[in-house]
Amino acid sequence: MSVLARAAAEDIVRHLADLPPLPAHRRLRGPETGLVMVRGRAGGDGAPFNLGEMTVTRCSVRMEDGTIGHAHAAGRDQAQAEIAAVLDALMQQDAWRPRLEALVIAPLEAAQAERRAATARRAAATKVEFFTMTQMR
């Protein structure tokens, strides 16, 4: 679900193209947008404090066979939350799980990993190489 939470609805849908049509579902709740209060810690590792809120969209669905799926994702993309909830339900079914993992989750995950790696490579290029190498402690 952490992969779907980071994927735009259109990207998820694009990866569904090679799969049979998804079975019908009924919305149990949402999709609806609300807020989650983000917490930090004093000094980074001390007492929790309320940093500020973020928008979050959630959705719960029930598939025809009764499987329930939930999704929560940062932002306001209701289509994303709904499709992610459907996939959450289908991932619990042996008939769907391997195909969804291979055709949807894996490529999305790879794209997200590549985006992170690209940031890491740019950051690495800005790493300071000091001339003196004495350990200061």
């Binding site: 609300g34 209060m37 940093l51 928008t55 992170r116 740019r122 200061m136």
Partner: peptide, 28 residues
């Protein structure tokens, strides 16, 4: 205008994917 769903777990800033990190106290 939005409902509050709840509060997050406290952020673990140690696990941040860093774009920037500098210190004025330790060079190395």
């Amino acid at each position: 205008t939005l409902p509050r769903f709840g509060a997050s777990l406290p952020l673990d800033t140690n696990a941040m994917v860093l774009s920037r990190r500098i210190s004025a106290t330790y060079k190395d």
